[in-house]
């Protein structure tokens, strides 16, 4: 029976993420998309970003991934600035974005190919990753033969490929149905608890945020700014049963209230 412990040794070396007075405006003269964002995320912490559509959650992740510039402020992952192609940052999107001409195995291998890494080590690592996300029975399948949940598992394995210290997840489970979403969310939470990678998770689901996170950052829109920073003091490892506890509901309620008036769509 496979366990993560057999699959690989834990990293437990997440990087600290710091945002200091960050400003972002897409077009001059318009209201900033992000205004005066200050955030400190501890190594190994899992932090959720929640907030109404358009409040700048994806923008924040793109800044951290080095995909876009920002006007003012300071951003650091570890002691370095964000930059494209940093191997210590893993990125996962709402869509699995798999290459149909590559098998499951080859999709997971993509980051190694781009980084120019090959050899038996890489092959072994790819096998381990596929086992980790529970797709060993589908290694040679093509993306279109997979269910949405399985596709997202491939995407997760690929994001973990180069053993990043930071994971940036932009609504990774939103395209899945409720049941799969809960299940994969919990599975990811357990991986996180084991691996200790610093993780930022963007989600529209408050229960998902409560279930998975150490902290929930609620953002308001126009301009995007932090309206609440809620600590989730539920015990780890998290279990599905926590949803029924009063503490879980209290935390969810606190987040909901922080967002009231920001946008009706969220609560």
């Amino acid at each position: 029976m496979a366990s993560i412990a057999e699959v690989r040794e834990p990293v437990l070396t997440g990087e600290r993420i710091t945002l200091h007075r960050v400003h972002k405006t897409y077009s001059a003269g318009e209201q900033p998309v992000l205004k005066d964002i200050n955030l400190e995320i501890e190594p190994g912490e899992l932090v959720s970003l929640v907030g109404p559509s358009g409040c700048g959650k994806s923008t924040m992740l793109k800044i951290l991934a080095g995909l876009i510039d920002f006007e003012a402020g300071e951003v650091a992952i570890g002691d370095q600035q964000p930059q494209e192609g940093r191997r210590d940052v893993g990125f996962m999107l709402q869509q699995a974005v798999l290459m149909p001409w590559r098998s499951v195995r080859e999709n997971v291998k993509l980051p190694f190919d781009i980084a120019g890494l090959k050899g038996q080590d890489v092959e072994d690592r790819v096998d381990q990753l596929i086992e980790l996300v529970g797709l060993d029975h589908a290694v040679e399948k093509s993306p279109w033969e997979l269910s949405g949940g399985m596709q997202q598992r491939v995407s997760l394995a690929r994001a973990l490929a180069l053993d990043p210290k930071v994971m940036l997840l932009d609504e990774p489970f939103s395209a899945l149905d409720e049941f799969k979403r809960e299940h994969l969310g919990l599975e990811f939470t357990h991986m996180h608890e084991y691996m200790g990678k610093t993780t930022i998770l963007v989600t529209h689901s408050i229960p998902e945020a409560v279930m998975m996170s150490d902290r929930i950052i609620a953002l308001g829109a126009h301009p995007g700014r932090v309206v609440a920073d809620v600590k989730v003091d539920l015990p780890r490892p998290r279990t599905a049963g926590l949803v029924g506890t009063s503490r879980f509901q209290e935390i969810a309620q606190e987040v909901r209230e922080a967002l009231v008036g920001e946008d009706g769509s969220i609560a």
């Binding site: 496979a2 412990a5 269910s147 399985m150 799969k180 991986m191």
Partner: peptide
């Protein structure tokens, strides 16, 4: 050392596929 057994959990993906 903590071990988390992923395979022991039911996999939603498979359960749902008839």
């Amino acid at each position: 050392m903590t071990t988390i057994d992923t395979s022991a959990q039911t996999r939603a993906d498979e359960v749902l596929v008839p």
